[in-house]
Each structure stands twice: as C-alpha cells, then as structure tokens.
Design a protein around this nucleic acid. Structure first.
Lengths: 313, 313
DNA sequence: TATCCTTACGGAATTCGTAAGCATG
DNA sequence: CATGCTTACGAATTCCGTAAGGATA
C-alpha cells in the first residue's frame, strides 16, 4: 500500500470512476493507474470498484468504506506537508477564504488590509459563494476557512466559531414615510414592498421568522445576494430594504436613511468555519484573530481539541 | 513521502528516539531507517528530531506536530487493512477486549460464550487491568474495545457508551448483626470494618462519596481489585464487604448474605469504550451488542458519527 | 571504548510509460 | 468503432542491506 495508490483511487472516484480521466488529471499513464488500483485491491483483499466487463460502474460495499478512509489518510498526509511548509517558512504560502458577498464587501476589507501588511508574501484568495457553497469549499479543502452567517454550523465536519454579532437595519429613501415613524414596528414595515436578501443568505431566515411570528404577510418584491444591489433599488423607490447593519455606511449612503431594527429581528452571528482535523498554518490563526479578536490561536486550538486527542510527548 | 518513512518515525519515537532499536523492532537495517527519516525530513522541509551531534535527544517543535499527524495517518492505514480483512472474511480474525476483573469474571462469561458459538474462528483475548490501563490499551490500539465502570469517559479520544447499570450490595457473614437490621443505613455500615475495592476500581468512588456526604468516617481494613478476594475475607469475619451487585451469586455464595444497598450508593454505569476513528469489524459490533443489547450496530455507528463525517456516495 | 547515527555503494525490487489487446455500448 | 480497462515488457527509479566512518558519553 502506498500513497500513490490511494491518490489514484481518490481521483478515480472524483472523476466519476473514469480511470482515464483520473490518469490525465494526475499527469500519469492510464495503465499505471489501472495496475496500481488493482494491486491495492489485491493487497486489501477486496474489490473497491464494481466492474461491468472492463468498465467501472460503481463502488462495492467494502469500496465505500475504503474510499472514506482513503480520503482521511490523504487529508492527514496533506496536513503533514502543511506542517512542513508552515515551519519552514511562516511568512509565505496561500490562504483561501470562502465567504459571502456581505462579508467580503463590508466585514473583511479591513481584516484583509491588515493581513496583507503583516504577511505580504502570503497569497490571499477570496472565493465568493452562498453559505452552502462556502461550507462545501471548506469541507472539500478548496478553502482554508469559511466566513458566513448562515448554515456553517450545520455540518459536523466543520468547526464553526462565532465571529461577531450583528443586526439588520431597515433602509429607505430619505423622504419615505417610514423614516418619520417614531418607533419602528414590523406592522409598519409590512405595509411597504420589501427588498432584501435571497432566502439562503445573510440572516434572511431571521427576517422571515420575525414577520411570520407576528402573523404578518410581507411583499418581497425583489431579492438579491448583494447589499449594494438592494440599496440601489431602494434608492430608486421600489421599496424599503432590510440589510445587514454592517452594510450601511452613513458617510457613503447619503441618499438612504437607516432605521434601527435591533428590536425587531433576531440577532445574527457570523461564523468562521474550519475543517476539523486540518493543520492550520500560523498565519491562518492570525487571520482569524484579525477578523474576530476573541478567536485567538489558543481559543481556536482549544475548540479544535474538543474532540481530538491533545497529548504531549 | 511513503508509509515506510512514517512507520520508521513512529517506531523511533516509541523506542525513545533510538533508531537502532526501531530498526530491530521493524526487522530492517539501521542505516535504512536513518536514511528514510532524513529523506522525510528533507521532503517536509523541517527537522523532526532534535540532534546533539549524531544522537537524537528529542523532538523539535515541528517534529511534535509531525509525529501527532503521523500517528493518525498510520492509524487510518491500519483501518484500511481492517476493512479488507473484515469484508474478505467476516468470520475470523482477532478481538481483544480490555476489561477489569469484575467484568471479566461476572458480566462477560455469558457474552463471551455466546460470541464463541457465533464466531468460532475469531480469536478472543481478554486483557485485564485497572480502568486507566483499560482506557490506555484501547487508545494505543492494543485492545479493540474496553469495558469498565470508571474513567472511560474521561478521554476525548475514546467513545464511551453506556452498557448497563448496577448498584453495590453489602455482604456479610450469615450471622452478622448487620444482616438483621431492618433497613440498612450508612450509619449502620460505618460501625463495622469495611472491605471493598481499591480506589481506582469498579465504582469505588461512589462508595466514598456516599459516606463523606453524610460526614461518616469509615474504616477500610482491606482493599482488593477482585470481588472474590473481598468475599473470602468477609467470610473469614474480617469485616463487611461492599461489592458490585453482579458479583454476588446467591447459588454459590452460600456462606454470605447480600444486603440491598441500592438506596445508599449512587448507581454505576459500566461502559464500553472504542477508539474514535477506528474501523470496527462486523463481529466487534456483534460482541458489543451481545454485551449491551441496546448498543446495536446502528446505535454505535450513530454515536461514532456524532462528530465525524457521515456522507454517502 | 561502547553506543549510535551518517555516508557510500551495489544489487534487488518497484514503479512507470509505451504498445498492443480486448470488452462494452 | 470509439471508449476505456487490462496485459506485457523494458527502462528508470527507488529501496535496502552491507561495510565503513565519525561523534558522543
């Protein structure tokens, strides 16, 4: 058994059981992959792939178990290399952050700027997506950390640490009747067409909850994944907007008024997700702490160790 | 990077950083080990071992991280082989159970007998030890499962599932004054010398708790790890015994009287421990279920998946 | 001086790519 | 007949053991 064999198996599974594609992806010859897989099967004493004639059509029962473990072995092997890179050169490498629009646009710029100053030789990549995509990118190892408000804590493979709390604000054009109400209520808001986030995004669930809990029907005329789009349409008078508080900037959004809605909607927690069992590079801890000061290296490590072993030699 | 290198590193650590011993243990040449370790260090770009001249004197900082991950990789690799063996031949193999005297003597015989009938070709091994040893044997992979009443749930690396509940009984010679008391109390018991388990064993902690909670001093004249020893000395009139209910057998212990003490001491839970992340062979699940019927394969797998991934292909 | 790691070197084993073969849709 | 896995074989690489060298306690 060797790592090459395991890599071949993993890649073949990822490429829909097509050995030829796997071989191409790994820049090697197809017969080599075929042979190595066969040898692994012989060594383990089980067939991993179900064959119809000479074609792979699925995984056998033991194959499923094997593949699951193979993934883990290769992950740990990847961790080993990361340890090496981390200690060999703490100042350079890659850091990929999967996040949503709102975070990338409003919460992260300051953090990223500080990080760049501290680690000019780390190549930063921001990957945008909806919260589910963010979670998947982290789980697949395509991103080192994920930052989003929804759904990150729904996966046992991920550790989702609370980063910061925020509430929604209601935004209106300057002369809107809602802007003159003494104390904002859900009933008042429900009278107007509403523009807000797409269902899977940025605390949208808490918005719906609040209205339905009061038995109020709302008329959502437009949804976007993007606070800027929402603001644009509110400025045009299409309705009142409900967006994340962080996304309103009094200095720049001079055509809009923001109404405090803290008492109307449940607070939201934006979380940082990392994949359990992954070795994090030193600068990754620093990035996380830059984003949420209470998430120090110690704190993150303690959370990670929650279910892992923590022995010293 | 290959498995051989990782094995060499692990063995060297286990043999107190002595490459020569590691080479002997793995039936290979010492220069081979030396070279492979060096090559791994080069590939990872860090020194794993701290050297004074040509001698290994410790692990470097990165070395500690590396060793921890190496252990995990090799464990998973071992799991892969187990999968193979399990599917290739579900009826034979090894099963090592680490447990305490009381369990081995009173709770397990029936389970073991049934198991032997069902799996005549599985080689069973019972390893006896105190609860801490039991836990360690499971953690080190020297035993597949551990069964004990104390301390198994103190290790995050282990999953400790509740097997069965039991309470203590007080045993006395037939003509002992305590045997005539209408309703047994702690105060009554405390009047006599007591013979019971060693501190680290079989629910002993609950015994002490009960007396000290009442402010009672007890005179423990003799402790043993072994219910049979305790019974012997009680028969000799050295004192009253406090043992696990399961350890009293009315049919055989005709010289002793057992007094219900359910209302005096906290109940105890005997647990089955398995190491997280280990692949369990089919018959291991069957053994566990034989021991505690509620711990079906499904139930155990669900508990194991509690923090691991559980995806299907 | 005994222990223990490193270096050097040659033979053995493994890996890998090319070319050809064969089964499926 | 195009796609895709297997078999065969030779070249290149890697692995591993023996022998010798050097450093520490």
């Amino acid at each position: 058994m060797n790592f090459q064999q395991l890599r071949y198996v993993r890649e073949t599974v990822r490429r829909n059981l097509n050995i030829t594609e796997a071989a191409n992806a790994l820049f090697t010859s197809q017969p080599g992959v075929s042979k190595q897989i066969k040898e692994l099967e012989e060594e383990l004493g089980v067939e991993i792939f179900e064959r119809r004639g000479r074609r792979f059509v699925g995984l056998t029962e033991p194959g499923k178990a094997v593949v699951r473990i193979v993934e883990r072995v290769l992950e740990e092997a990847e961790n080993l290399k990361r340890v090496g890179r981390d200690f060999a050169d703490r100042e350079s490498g890659n850091l990929t952050i999967a996040t949503t629009h709102t975070q990338a646009r409003y919460a992260l710029p300051r953090v990223v700027a500080d990080f760049r100053k501290r680690y000019p030789n780390v190549h930063l990549a921001l990957q945008q997506g909806n919260p589910q995509t963010v979670a998947q990118m982290v789980m697949r190892g395509e991103a080192d950390i994920g930052i989003a408000t929804e759904s990150l804590d729904a996966y046992p493979e991920l550790l989702a640490l609370p980063g910061y709390q925020w509430t929604h604000v209601v935004i209106t054009p300057l002369d809107h009747p809602l802007a003159k109400v003494a104390r904002l209520t859900l009933e008042e808001i429900a009278k107007y067409p509403i523009i807000t986030y797409s269902p899977e995004f940025t605390g949208r669930s808490h918005i719906n909850e609040a209205f339905t809990a009061r038995g109020l029907e709302i008329d959502v005329v437009l949804t976007a994944i993007d606070s800027d789009v929402i603001k644009t349409y509110v400025e045009l008078g299409l309705g009142v907007g409900i967006i994340a508080g962080v996304a309103y900037d009094a200095a720049r959004d001079t055509d809009l008024k923001a109404l405090d809605a803290r008492h109307l909607f449940r607070g939201n927690t934006t979380r940082v997700a990392i994949k359990r069992g992954t070795f994090l590079r030193g600068y990754t801890y620093d990035f996380i702490e830059g984003f949420a000061p209470q998430l120090t290296r110690k704190a993150v490590e303690r959370a990670l160790a929650g279910d892992a072993e923590s022995y010293e030699l």
